[in-house]
């Protein structure tokens, strides 16, 4: 079988992730310049402020497409396990910190960190696969 980076589904995944990251960084920069510095108000400001967050929707869609398009069923299993570890970690961290904020004087964590933690969780999931299944998968 072809190396991971030459597989069309893995290549599409990397291109899509690069585009999503470009959208994220571009919209973040635009929000800083136009809302923070330029004083943009009204619905355009809301739309622009939502864009960096919506680029995370692209990341989830891209990961789902990777699972759907992957032809190697074992690799597909690894991706699903990776996603489950990431989801478990991110949602647990969000829930625990939410209760800590409710009952104790801890620092507030902005909500956009939870999907960011999900992305880091994919790395933890790859490590978990490596330890338990002997391989981290093609797109780890």
């Amino acid at each position: 079988m072809t190396p991971a980076f030459k597989k069309p589904e893995a290549r599409r995944y990397l291109i899509r992730i690069a585009l999503a990251m470009a959208l994220y960084l571009g919209s973040l920069y635009a929000a800083e310049v136009l809302i923070e510095d330029g004083g943009l108000r009204g619905w355009p400001a809301y739309a622009l402020a939502a864009l960096p967050g919506l680029s995370f929707a692209a990341v989830f869609w891209i990961f789902a497409r990777l699972i759907v398009e992957e032809r190697d069923e074992f690799q597909r299993l690894l991706y699903v396990r990776q996603g489950m570890v990431a989801t478990g970690l991110a949602l647990t961290a969000a829930a625990v910190w939410g209760f800590l904020e409710t009952y104790l004087p801890v620092a507030h964590v902005e909500a956009y960190w939870w999907p960011t933690i999900w992305c880091f969780g994919l790395g933890v999931g790859a490590l978990y696969n490596r330890v338990t299944m002997g391989t981290a998968g093609d797109c780890a």
Binding site: M1, R71, D72, E73, F74, Q75, L77, T132, M133, G134, T135, G137, D138
Partner: peptide, 18 residues
């Protein structure tokens, strides 16, 4: 037409194929 890791996982009993 699968990855070498797939063959290894099946051989070692870590993964049962469809």
């Amino acid at each position: 037409e699968v990855s070498r890791q797939s063959v290894n996982a099946i051989e070692t009993g870590k993964y049962d194929p469809s």
